[in-house]
């Protein structure tokens, strides 16, 4: 590594330290300034969407699996945790682990089933899966309480403070993002990109296509499941409406507008959109019309999203640098 590289490396660490300190300070700033704690809630939910949209970006943008079942896996995590807690009386920390595992298991099963499908068939199959799941949760109200909402134990007991939830969600987001970056910077990331570009060519070059495709589903479902369990134990009530197709559309739109090929851009896109929709709430129906138009125009004219190109420019990176990363990765 050159001396120039070392300096840049140090700057990055300094920036990271500042970022983490600032993130840690958010609740303090809100409290000390007497700002409404409501905004802490908005940011927690924004982190929740950031986790979903970045993990969907990993599945769709990196691995090329355009699944519509991501919110379904999220709901599996949340409902599994809530139901186990309700019927077996286990504490939230245990049920969260079980919920995440259930989502991962479902991800493995769906990943294995859709192996052969091309884009359009995959999209249709995952929509069908998601809708069947939602109808079941709604229909079996005796068990899930359906639309009346399943009450879930709060993660941090009876406290009315949102601060512990904020730090928990922040920690989950940072750790999951870091893990996903480690994953895509490794050989696995290279293989996933190779499969996305040309599955047959990748297979011919000895990439175990089946294994890596399923791996992508399992990892992203685990993360979606974790997001779902956290959401369940934070909001403490779950309804099947959290997994309707428009909600899935929202997550997809967040990732697309951020930039589907960069996990970080997808996460930032989610945070901006979630906060933006909240700020623009009084515009009512027209807010979603503008949002829809933005989504379509981004897709057509800015395939890399609106956030990712800014990153590239600020960092002096271009598409070439992206390619270089992909080439460098296996060498390490």
């Amino acid at each position: 590594m050159s001396s120039m590289g070392r300096i840049r490396f140090r700057i990055e660490w300094a920036v990271a330290a500042v970022a983490v300190v600032l993130a840690l300070l958010v609740p303090y700033v809100i409290q000390s300034r007497g700002l409404p704690t409501y905004w802490l809630h908005v940011i927690i939910i924004a982190y929740f969407y950031a986790l979903l949209s970045s993990s969907w970006a990993l599945l769709a943008g990196v691995a090329g699996q355009f699944s519509f079942a991501h919110m379904g896996f999220m709901a599996i995590g949340g409902y599994a945790s809530g139901l186990v807690g309700k019927y077996l009386g286990l504490p939230p920390l245990v049920t969260i682990v079980l919920g995440v595992l259930a989502a991962g298991l479902a991800g493995w099963a769906i990943g294995a089933l859709v192996l052969r499908f091309k884009a359009a068939y995959l999209a249709l199959f995952t929509i069908a899966f998601s809708e069947i799941l939602r109808t079941l949760i709604r229909g079996e109200a005796d068990i899930t309480r359906g639309d009346q909402g399943l009450h879930v134990a709060p993660l941090f007991g009876e406290t009315i403070s949102r601060v512990p939830y904020y730090y928990a969600m922040l920690a989950i987001l940072v750790v999951c993002l870091a893990l996903m970056y480690v994953l895509i910077s490794s050989r696995v990331g290279l293989f996933l990109r190779a499969i996305r570009e040309d599955e047959e060519a990748a297979a011919a070059r000895g990439v175990d296509v089946v294994r890596y495709k399923i791996l992508a589903f399992v990892v992203t479902s685990l993360i979606a499941g974790l997001a779902g369990t956290f959401f369940a134990h934070y909001i403490t009530i779950l309804t099947p409406n959290i997994m309707v197709i428009p909600q899935m559309g929202l997550v997809i739109a967040m990732a697309i507008i951020g930039g589907v090929e960069s996990l970080m851009a997808a996460a930032i896109g989610a945070i901006i959109i979630q906060v933006g929709l909240e700020v623009l709430r009084e515009f009512g129906a027209w807010r979603l019309v503008i949002f829809g138009a933005l989504l379509v125009l981004t897709l057509r004219f800015a395939r890399n999203g609106l956030i990712a190109p800014i990153f590239n420019r600020v960092l002096g990176l271009g598409p070439k640098a992206e390619a270089r990363v992909a080439e460098e990765a296996p060498a390490q």
Binding site: G64, P246, W286, G292, V296, R303
Partner: peptide, 26 residues
């Protein structure tokens, strides 16, 4: 002109459905 047209086609039509539905509602 579009990379990975299969994915694009899914997303663009999905985005349009979102747009039209909210437009009619408004």
């Amino acid at each position: 002109q579009i990379e990975r047209p299969d994915e694009y086609a899914i997303l663009i039509t999905f985005g349009l459905s979102f747009f039209f539905q909210n437009l009619v509602l408004a």
